[in-house]
Simulated scan of single mutants.
Amino acid sequence: MRVIKLPIDHVGIVGSDLDRMLESFSKLGFYLSGRTEMTAGVEGQGASTNAHFVFDQGYIETIASTGSDHLADYLARGEGLHIAALRSGDARKSREELEQRGLKPGAVLSAARPARHGSVQGQASFDWFGFDPSSFPEGLVCVVEHKTPELIFQPETRYVHPNGAKGIVDLFVYTAGEEGAAPYESLAAGVPAMPLAAGHTPEWTEQLTLLVSPSEVRDRFPFLGEVSEPRFLGVLIEVASLQVVKDLLDEAAVAYHGDGGGDGDRDRDGRRDGRRTIWVHPNDAAGCMVGFTERL
Rank of each mutant, 00 (worst) to 15 (best):
V120H: 13
V254N: 04
P149M: 13
R20S: 15
G106K: 05
E185K: 09
T205I: 10
F172H: 05
A193E: 06
V143A: 10
S65Q: 01
L109N: 11
V227S: 10
Y74N: 06
D73T: 14
W128H: 12
Q243C: 03
L208Q: 03
K27S: 08
L75N: 05
L233A: 07
P155I: 02
G41H: 01
S94G: 09
D56G: 10
F30R: 00
T39W: 01
E96P: 09
E229Q: 14
L233K: 03
L236K: 06
G78H: 11
N163S: 05
A84W: 02
L208G: 02
F172A: 11
A47M: 14
E43G: 14
A189W: 03
A255N: 10
A64E: 04
G177E: 08
V245S: 02
R295L: 07
D259K: 03
A286S: 08
V227Q: 08
G80I: 03
A176I: 02
E156W: 01
G15Y: 01
P133W: 02
R220S: 12
D19A: 15
V244W: 00
V3P: 09
K166T: 01
G264M: 02
V212R: 09
D269W: 04
R271P: 05
L296F: 07
S213A: 13
V173R: 00
R218T: 13
L86Y: 05
C142R: 09
G260H: 01
T36G: 14
S26V: 00
A85I: 03
S68A: 10
I152H: 02
D170F: 02
T49L: 15
P192K: 04
Q243H: 00
T66C: 09
G270Q: 02
R116M: 12
A76E: 13
D17M: 06
R276Y: 04
V217E: 00
D284N: 09
A188D: 06
D56I: 06
D267P: 04
A181P: 08
S186C: 12
M38V: 15
T49H: 13
V42D: 10
G67C: 08
A165D: 07
D219Q: 14
W279A: 08
F223L: 12
P149S: 11
A188M: 08
V108C: 12
S135F: 07
A40R: 06
P214I: 03
R272C: 11
A115L: 04
I83F: 09
G102V: 06
L86K: 02
R231G: 04
L81R: 01
S228I: 12
D247P: 04
G130K: 02
P137C: 12
Y174D: 01
R295C: 08
H161I: 01
Q121F: 07
G106A: 12
A193S: 14
R220D: 03
H200F: 13
G41Q: 00
G258K: 00
Y159V: 06
T36S: 14
V173G: 01
R268P: 02
V11Y: 05
L103D: 10
R20H: 13
T39I: 08
V108L: 11
S228Q: 13
V245L: 02
T49A: 14
E206D: 15
A285N: 01
A124V: 11
A85P: 06
R92S: 14
K147P: 05
H117F: 08
F292Q: 00
F30C: 00
P195E: 12
G287V: 05
I168H: 04
G34R: 03
D73E: 14
Y31M: 05
G67L: 07
D9H: 06
E61V: 05
